[in-house]
Design a protein around this nucleic acid. Structure first.
Length: 106
DNA sequence: GCCATGGCTAGTA
DNA sequence: GCCATGGCTAGTA
C-alpha cells in the first residue's frame, strides 16, 4: 500500500507550468511517483477547479488532445490560445514543443 | 460505480 | 475500443 495522492502536491506542480506550456495527466502522476494515477489526477483537478491561481487548463491528454475542463473544452481552448498555444480542432498543433519537462521545473 | 486517462490490441483500408 | 487504475460520492442498510 502506497501513500495516497495529495491534491496539494498536484497543485504545487501545476503552478510551475509557464504560460504557453502544458503538461499531461500522466506526466503529473509520474512526477508524484504514481505512474498509474493519471485518471485520478483528472478527478482531483475537476474537484478543485481553484479558479485563477491554479492553471488547471494547462493539463492535456497524452496524445495531444485538449482533454476535459470543468467549464467546458471551449473555455479551456480559449485560455490556451490566449497563452499562445495553437490548435487544430481539439488537438494541439505542436504538442511536442508545448509540452513542459516537469523535471526541469525543479 | 462513476470519471477532465492511457496504453495496447484487433482489425479495416 | 477495451479495460486497469485510483479517488470520490451518492445513496442503501
Amino acid at each position: 500500500m502506497q501513500k495516497q495522492l495529495k491534491a496539494d502536491d498536484v497543485y504545487d506542480i501545476l503552478v510551475r507550468i509557464p504560460e504557453g506550456k502544458v503538461t499531461t495527466y500522466g506526466d503529473i502522476a509520474k512526477a508524484l511517483g504514481h505512474p498509474n494515477a493519471s485518471r485520478a489526477i483528472g478527478r482531483i483537478l475537476n474537484k478543485n477547479p481553484n479558479p485563477v491561481v491554479v492553471p488547471c487548463h494547462r493539463v492535456v491528454m497524452s496524445d495531444g488532445n485538449i482533454g476535459g475542463y470543468a467549464f467546458g473544452k471551449a473555455r479551456k481552448k480559449e485560455l490556451l490560445k490566449k497563452e499562445g498555444v495553437c490548435f487544430m480542432g481539439d488537438d494541439m498543433h505542436d504538442f511536442a514543443a508545448c509540452r513542459a519537462d516537469l523535471q526541469k521545473l525543479h
